[in-house]
């Protein structure tokens, strides 16, 4: 029984990392209506930036480093959209052009990361912590902070989408961008802001992924991307709340399943969930018209 609680506990940690990243991916998908296949590499850049700050001569506190990494990736996402992705999306009507461009961007960024930081496995400079008992669960302080960050971020996004003008404009654009444009929403500004938020969440997600996995490699973001895809597809592509729920389902399922099978097949579990979702609920738990 205690093993099960341990697994559930770690599942919640994974779900937190997933939720941050999946919501970041979904926010951008909702606005631009295409999947960013370079999202995993955005995460890697965030992870390595905070690694350099954290372990370099500056010895920045890991959480501060995480935030700086996130902000940097946010700015990078805005610039990449402004000068690369948006021009392609404007010029070509066919979806596959822009998808290939993001796919190509992922190749460029992955190799950029490994040329700058090398291929060796890196770790953050975090002291070893004794796990604390919380009810039946067992968490380290860092894991609790990660869960806390995810909860705060999800609440913040919820309030932004439901209570602020900007958030409402975002939802309007996501539902119908032509209508939003004619109804006086500054779509350019909203698009830029969305890319920034998506990049910010990718950067933070990359760092917390590195913290919870206790390792950073150039490819870990790309590998994780497809667990994010599983969460997003389970929840319904483009649905923010779907991404949150999908993250919890996939996070818990992969960790609990690891009790019964060899943990090296965790990825296959995530994929099995993705396939089941496709078979039984192809448009996701929170499907939205026109997005699938």
């Amino acid at each position: 029984m205690s093993e099960l609680f341990l697994a559930i506990g770690f599942g919640l940690v994974v779900a937190s990392v997933l939720a941050l990243s999946a919501v970041g991916l979904s926010l951008q998908f909702g606005i631009t209506n295409y999947i960013n296949f370079a999202f995993g590499d955005f995460m890697a850049i965030g992870a390595y930036t905070s690694w350099t700050l954290n372990t370099g001569p500056l010895h920045v506190n890991i959480w501060v480093a995480m935030l700086i990494g996130g902000l940097l990736v946010g700015v990078m996402a805005v610039l990449l959209n402004r000068f690369l992705l948006a021009p392609f999306a404007r010029r070509f009507q066919k979806l596959f052009y822009i998808l290939i461009v993001t796919f190509g961007l992922s190749l460029v960024l992955l190799n950029l990361v490994s040329s700058i930081w090398g291929d060796e496995v890196q770790r953050y400079n975090i002291s070893n912590q004794a796990p604390q008992h919380i009810g039946p669960f067992l968490f380290t302080v860092d894991q609790l902070v990660v869960i806390g960050i995810a909860i705060v971020a999800m609440l913040a996004i919820h309030f932004m989408l439901t209570r602020t003008r900007i958030g409402k404009s975002m939802r309007a654009m996501s539902d119908n961008s032509t209508l939003a444009m004619t109804s006086g929403i500054n779509t350019g500004f909203i698009t830029t802001l969305t890319w920034f938020l998506s990049g910010l969440l990718a950067g933070i997600g990359g760092t917390v992924l590195g913290i919870t996995q206790a390792s950073i490699t150039p490819g870990s973001g790309e590998t994780f991307l497809f667990v994010i895809f599983a969460a997003v597809i389970v929840g319904g592509v483009g649905s923010i709340y779907g991404a949150m729920v999908g993250a919890v389902i996939v996070g818990l399922a992969t960790e609990v399943a690891a009790l019964f099978i060899d943990p090296s097949y965790k990825l296959d579990i995530a994929f099995a969930i993705l396939i089941l979702a496709l078979l039984f609920r192809p448009s996701g738990l929170f499907s939205r018209p026109g997005k699938a």
């Binding site: 295409y34 999947i35 296949f37 979806l95 596959f96 998808l99 497809f226 895809f229 599983a230 997003v232 597809i233 592509v237 994929f271 993705l274 496709l278 699938a292």
Partner: peptide, 10 residues
């Protein structure tokens, strides 16, 4: 198209 690409890359 993009759904399919996501599934295939996964």
């Amino acid at each position: 198209t993009d759904y399919l690409a996501m599934v295939l890359i996964s």
